[in-house]
Design a protein around this nucleic acid. Structure first.
Lengths: 335, 335
DNA sequence: TTAAAGTGCGCACACGTTTGCGCATCTCTT
DNA sequence: AAGAGATGCGCAAACGTGTGCGCACTTTAA
């Protein structure tokens, strides 16, 4: 079919010559412009099909200004939450006909050179989860009109973000534990300045206070399984043990649970454990973890919507969306 | 700094006007062409710096033919191996100054429309893990000279791939178990036609045969934690229990281990368990899983090298690389 | 003194697509 | 029958960068 001597891909110009029309006619026909007659359109579509025409999205960017590319900044691989978020983003991007450019993944901060590559590829926007953007990097994006959306975290005083209602979620978990008759609470937080973790903890502690209780123990660790495991181990070693543990993320709660299991503590009889995120792992029978499920699909959709709106109109003000999570009571809190 | 009335980004033309030279001179100066005098070059570099010039990589693609974009097809989120692979790929891409375009993620096959978007963005190549490419999609890529590399899986009869030496790894695990005095073996495989799983199983069974033993049980399940858990549950229910279980992936082995734990089976005393992949989770004290670690960083690097070579020279023949994995003996096999 | 080689840079086109403008032709309307 | 609107399409410029070719000037060689 394809001639070996002419390996060149079909272009709009190729098709226009074949069809005996102008390149602009081909473009309009392919894009469904109503001003092109149905007959011409059909003829061009058929030619495109025959010759395996694939539009050059990069060339389109050049003249239209939109690239159809969104940057994605991902958190560490050790937390399955980000893997789920990635897959959700891929699904949503496919639905919207846009592509995802992985800009950064991992724990560390985003380097300035990485931020610059955002510009090189003319991304229409960028979704940031977890990682911190240096002020210089943020400045670069702002100066070049690249809209930024933080998912699952908020920046200091500016920018768009969509999060779960962390405060309410923390409070709801506290209510559940109080209603279950728990009295001695441990909080497993994170040493990072993550807004998400802080809000969850605040909500939890505030609700405890409403019930007239204060946590008896507090741990700060790395926001990972290992951090949770270390906290769980520390709980075991404490002279007086709590009867309920709130970990600010499921991955940490899983670490806590495993430490308790190795220490011979029975959950939920001797100790209840709750987490936050609603990752798939939490549903495993071995963990059976009570948690707040983040409405990930909706959060991702909202993020894309905000990006799409802002890539069309740069004057839109900063916007923040908070979505209520769903309490999933499981075995780790009894019943 | 940036004038509100002139939101346009600096381009080569902008700089050329500022410097009083031709656009081509600017291009050559920025790209380090030796034919441009040092004085002119310094002046242009300074101007570029001042005006925050960011080259338009998409425009460059148009005239140079190379996009600096690689497609990435990722497996399901439920297996942490793919998350690790993603992060490794991101790291390697950063080092090489190329970008990753997420084409597809998840369990299902790659749709043809997805494959076409590979072409739209003129990717220089594509790394495929796990998902299957329809023959039509493969044809599209071949016709358009988009090199494809399979990582951790091999296609039927053609294409480039880089894998771990699955057969040798399976054999090594069998040796270890035999040396540990195990006699009754169960194999937890996957119902998918994944070449990787089949090779691992073949290697394991072949080595058992050399020792004069055949597995007493065999399970096929979904290649996931749940699949492993189901197999583990089935093992519990069997009248006569094996004293060693080989799961073809760590994620399945984790499922097996948890099922055994819930069933009160003590590992490694009553039963040894081994996995394959070397994911981070396998090292958790609660699993402490003996496994074969895939040399992920090297595998990813080789994949990029093969892609880079093929995007420069389309005539290169198919090539396959097999890298030896490393046995990591842990508590799940005793000692 | 002249030819040859080297240096520094500009011109112009190419890459593939989009889009504003405008020119025909055809169909109504009055 | 003539102006008004609709319909169908072409022309040409633009997006930003890369590059082959060639011109002018300088240095070196004979």
């Amino acid at each position: 079919m394809e001639n070996e001597a002419s390996p060149r891909r079909a272009t709009v110009v190729t098709l226009s010559e074949l069809a005996g029309v102008a390149p602009s006619t081909v473009t309009r026909a392919l894009r469904g412009d109503t001003r092109i007659s149905e007959a011409t359109r059909a003829r061009i579509l058929k030619l495109a099909e025959q010759h395996g025409y694939a539009p050059n999205a990069l060339a389109r960017t050049l003249s239209s200004g939109r690239s159809g590319l969104y940057g994605l900044v991902l958190g560490p691989a050790s937390n399955p939450f980000y893997a789920e978020l990635l897959h959700e983003a891929v699904r949503e991007a496919k639905e919207r006909g846009v592509r995802l450019l992985i800009i950064h993944a991992g724990d560390g901060p985003i380097e300035d050179t990485t931020a610059e590559s955002l510009l090189h590829y003319q991304v229409d926007g960028c979704i940031i989860t977890s990682a911190v953007l240096s002020s210089r990097a943020a400045e670069i994006c702002a100066a070049n009109r690249v809209p930024l959306i933080m998912v699952n975290r908020v920046a200091r005083h500016h920018g768009c973000f969509v999060t779960c209602d962390n405060h309410a979620g923390g409070a709801e978990l506290a209510q559940l534990l109080l209603a279950g008759g728990r009295t001695k609470f441990a909080v497993v937080g994170t040493s990072s300045t993550s807004s998400t973790a802080v809000e969850r903890e605040d909500g939890f502690v505030a609700e405890l206070a409403r019930g007239g209780v204060a946590p008896m123990m507090h741990f700060d660790g790395h926001s990972s399984y290992e951090g949770g495991f270390a906290a769980g181990t520390a709980i075991l070693e404490n002279a007086v043990r709590p009867d309920a543990v709130f970990a600010v993320s499921d991955i940490m709660a899983m670490g806590v649970l495993d430490a308790l299991r190795l220490g011979g503590v029975s959950v939920p009889d001797q100790m209840a454990v709750v987490g936050f995120d609603g990752v798939a792992e939490a549903a495993r029978p071995i963990y059976d973890l009570t948690t707040i499920e983040q409405p990930l699909p909706l959060m991702v959709r909202r993020a894309f919507e905000m990006l799409a709106a802002r890539s069309g109109n740069h004057r839109l003000p900063d916007e923040s969306i908070s979505l209520r999570g769903r309490l999933i009571p499981r075995g780790s809190t009894g019943r």
